[in-house]
């Protein structure tokens, strides 16, 4: 009798990449719904557009590389990249920027390095940064949250703006858009205003940006889901958030009128999304547990530093990309002690 032969172990696998990615997407759903509620249909349109662009770009490159297309597309990693990118960009970003960003993310940042697993940089964040430095105006035209919005844009109008730059009659970009809370905070502080004055602005909610704090809460819920499902571990989110909180608290305590309170940093921009969904991207993060604590903490330090003393109001993308560069080195020097390995004695 003839039998099939395989290499051990012979047990089936308990997990697969598609399921991992699908759970990441699922975890983002509450945050996406909240974002759509506060910022309109643009969020959904961007997600669909970015996903379509990302998947097409991936299929195109795989064809060029003469690789099987279906199994790679099915791993859903391109869709995760697209969704992360789409929730980071302004809801009314012109379509060609969204598509251009995705082409860059998938073709240059991901596939030119060898595809999933081989890219040193987070593709979504690299694309975001590319657009931010190349098209600063378009990339900072955020909509106000629905409470402050005077014009509610329906689906078709939003579609028209994104694809045809067709603003409704009598509406200008200035009237339609508004600074983000982080931007506002920065501008006002630069003008020498005190925190208590700045807080008078209607842009603020209870502890973060109005609306944005709730988007962050829902993303936080998704992050906890990923922790519960063991898709991610606590190390990177906790150390990143911890570092921001520690620095935020220290400066706030020293000068409460010149530095925003710590919760502001967490709930006014991309920190929660970044801590649970972006910095934890396993491909571009550190794999050792000790290394993850260092990696996360340094991202936190960079986020706080760039926000407080750097040139950009939000800094998650820059911080993550900078630490992506350091990840292999951190990993090498933070290898766990192997079973039975003797502690190195002094002089030995």
């Amino acid at each position: 009798m003839q039998f099939s032969t395989y290499s051990s172990p012979h047990t089936g696998h308990t997990e697969n990449v598609t399921r991992v990615m699908a759970q990441v997407l699922l975890a983002m759903v509450p945050g996406i719904i909240a974002m759509t509620w506060y910022f309109g249909w643009g969020v959904v349109i961007n997600i669909l557009l970015a996903s379509l662009a990302a998947v097409s770009a991936e299929a195109f490159v795989l064809k060029l590389r003469k690789r099987a297309v279906a199994p790679v597309i099915m791993d859903l990693s391109a869709v995760v990249t697209a969704v992360l990118f789409a929730v980071s960009i302004p809801p009314l970003l012109p379509w060609w920027l969204t598509v251009g960003g995705m082409l860059f993310a998938i073709i240059v940042v991901k596939q030119l390095y060898g595809g999933l697993g081989f890219n040193p940089f987070n593709p979504a964040m690299a694309a975001y940064v590319l657009l931010l430095v190349s098209y600063p105006t378009e990339m900072t035209q955020w909509l106000p949250p629905r409470e402050l919005s005077t014009h509610s844009l329906d689906f078709l109008t939003t579609l028209g703006i994104i694809f045809g730059n067709a603003l409704p009659q009598g509406l200008s970009w200035d009237a339609l858009t508004m600074a983000t809370p982080l931007d506002e905070m920065r501008t006002q502080l630069d003008m020498g205003k005190m925190i208590s004055e700045i807080r008078q602005s209607p842009l603020w909610g209870d502890y973060g940006g109005l609306g944005i704090e709730w988007v962050a809460n829902w993303f936080l819920l998704g992050g906890l889901f990923l922790l519960w499902r063991r898709i991610i571990t606590w190390h990177i989110p906790l150390s990143m958030i911890g570092a921001i909180l520690i620095m935020g608290t220290a400066w706030w305590l020293a000068e409460p009128e010149a530095n925003p309170f710590p919760a502001f940093h967490l709930f006014s921009g991309g920190v929660i999304l970044g801590a649970f969904f972006i910095a934890t991207d396993p491909v571009t993060a550190v794999t050792t547990k000790k290394g993850q604590l260092i990696f996360g903490a340094l991202i936190g330090v960079l986020v706080y530093s760039i926000r407080s003393w750097g040139g950009y109001p939000d800094a998650v993308a820059f911080a993550v990309l900078l630490m992506n560069m350091a990840a292999p080195t951190i990993g090498y020097y933070t290898q766990p002690r192997v079973y039975g390995e003797q502690e190195k004695k002094d002089g030995a």
């Binding site: 089936g12 696998h13 697969n16 990449v17 199994p71 790679v72 791993d75 595809g115 999933l116 794999t287």
Partner: peptide
């Protein structure tokens, strides 16, 4: 009992 191995895909360095 022992399913034939499924085709391997790229390592995503998940650390499992």
């Amino acid at each position: 009992d022992c399913p034939p191995p499924e085709p391997a895909t790229a390592c995503i360095r998940c650390g499992k």
